[in-house]
Design a protein around this nucleic acid. Structure first.
Length: 194
DNA sequence: TGCAAACCATAAC
DNA sequence: GTTATGGTTTGCA
């Protein structure tokens, strides 16, 4: 049984679907209806689900983590995510994205170089990210450090990145599935907006 | 700058 | 199988 919880914290809706301690999907946004739609679209069709009003202990923990991620705080996102039902390539891209640290961004193209495939394919995975904002797809931008797109709206993406600003000044290299992935301070994005 | 072409995994048909 | 679809990138005028 998949359990679905949603909660409004300080004017923003957060929602999570979980199954025995594993997160099947998560989402956030201004409209409860919209994010519930996201959640429902991402749960498998052959598993029964139920929507709860009172969060369980685990759900409470997840929801408050979502809220803290939304607030730009450093959060341990070591949750067990339901990757298994996703296509192999999608898993690789999401896992690479999950490695991008707070305060940094990278580009669609660089992720593509690290995990294979092309930039547009990476963009497609981002657009369908079932685990927002746990898998920080908002930290992926265009190669020229303009913002790119975002499911929850560009304004939201920008606000998230602003709150994640940590004053780093140098790029750095991550190791992702055996290859290097370069990440850059989020300031690179924020600086070229007027 | 702006436009066209190459790009590549998915989902839908 | 085939096609349509992007949260892209690069090259060239």
């Amino acid at each position: 049984m998949i359990e679905i919880y949603s909660q409004n914290i300080d004017g923003v809706w957060f929602s999570v679907a979980c199954n025995q301690g594993q997160i099947v999907s998560s989402s956030f946004g201004l409209s409860q209806q919209l994010i519930l739609g996201n959640i429902l679209a991402n749960i498998p069709f052959n598993v029964p689900f139920q929507v709860f009003h009172e969060p369980s202990f685990f759900a409470k923990h997840v929801l408050s983590s979502l809220k803290r991620i939304y607030g730009g705080q450093n959060v341990n996102t070591n949750f067990s995510l339901a990757f298994a039902r996703l296509p192999a390539y999608t898993q690789k891209v999401l896992k690479a994205t999950a490695e991008i640290p707070l305060g940094y961004v990278t580009s669609y193209g660089l992720i593509a170089k690290a995990v294979g495939g092309g930039p547009r394919a990476v963009g497609n995975v981002m657009a369908a990210n079932p685990f927002a904002p746990i898998v920080p797809c908002h930290r992926v931008v265009k190669s020229n450090f303009t913002i790119g797109g975002y499911g929850g709206g560009l304004k939201t993406k920008l606000e998230l990145l602003c709150r994640e600003k940590r004053g780093f000044s140098n790029s750095k290299e991550l190791e992702v599935s055996g290859r290097q992935l370069q990440v850059f301070p989020v300031e690179y994005v924020l600086r070229n907006l007027a």
